[in-house]
């Protein structure tokens, strides 16, 4: 990569528009290239300054409303009904390799992630509830936050199981089982399938509460379907 090509990559990298592989390759390129790091730092500073200036006082040019912003109807922009925020599973699907997007996810939902809520209350009453997840990738990586303001969420630890239904045995034959999950300081459970890849299809999930003497009690269960939409 020459300097001209690197210059053209700088903004894409800073704005996190690269996929994981591209970002890693660019990082390997600039790691020992002080000139490129200078440009990166300057561009990062410019970006930060623009954001700060925009938040503190209007800049001389009004920000134009764009199609992207106008069309963005994801849940965190819409606000959630009270019942949903009280009891739900938020499923975050990462479109490609996990690492880059997972780190983005740490700082809050990103417009590039698909997030949906799975209300636990409905799931309990309708065990076969199916939620379809439109997605443009053939393989998905899954993380879940389980909001646990349910009456029965009083256990010292939890187990979450996810198993494929009606899939070829070689694919996802074994269920994912996450033991010893504990509520975090926001009273949420975080479930991360790591680098395991979820293929499209139907899955049964079960959330179990574990008492101090390791007795299991089902808190919630249901079915979730990951369906591709091209």
């Amino acid at each position: 990569m020459d300097n001209m090509a690197a210059n053209q990559q700088i903004e894409r990298y800073l704005l996190r528009q690269m996929d994981e592989q591209e970002a890693s390759e660019f990082e390997a390129y600039y790691l020992s290239n002080n000139e490129c790091i200078d440009q990166l730092e300057m561009a990062e500073r410019l970006l930060e300054g623009l954001r700060f200036a925009k938040d503190s006082q209007p800049l001389s040019t009004p920000i134009i409303a764009t199609k992207k912003a106008a069309n963005d109807s994801r849940w965190w922009r819409k606000g959630l009904p009270v019942w949903a925020s009280a009891a739900m599973v938020m499923i975050t699907l990462f479109p490609s390799l996990m690492m880059y997007n997972e780190l983005k996810q740490q700082s809050g939902p990103s417009a590039e992630l698909s997030v949906l809520s799975l209300p636990l209350t409905e799931t309990r009453s309708a065990d076969q509830q199916v939620i379809k997840v439109p997605f443009s990738e053939q393989r998905m990586i899954l993380s879940m936050f389980v909001d646990t303001e349910l009456e029965q969420m009083v256990h010292p630890s939890y187990t979450f199981e996810l198993s494929a239904i009606n899939q070829v045995k070689s694919q996802n034959a074994n269920p994912w089982i996450f033991n010893q999950l504990k509520l975090d300081h926001n009273d949420m459970l975080y479930i991360d399938l790591g680098k395991s890849v979820v293929t499209p299809g139907s899955y049964r999930f079960t959330l179990l509460g574990l008492s101090e003497n390791n007795e299991k009690r089902e808190v919630s269960s249901g079915t979730v379907t990951f369906e591709l939409q091209h």
Partner: peptide
Amino acid sequence: RELIMRFYLQEE
């Protein structure tokens, strides 16, 4: 100016 704003802030 608009170009800079749209690219950096609107992330278009």
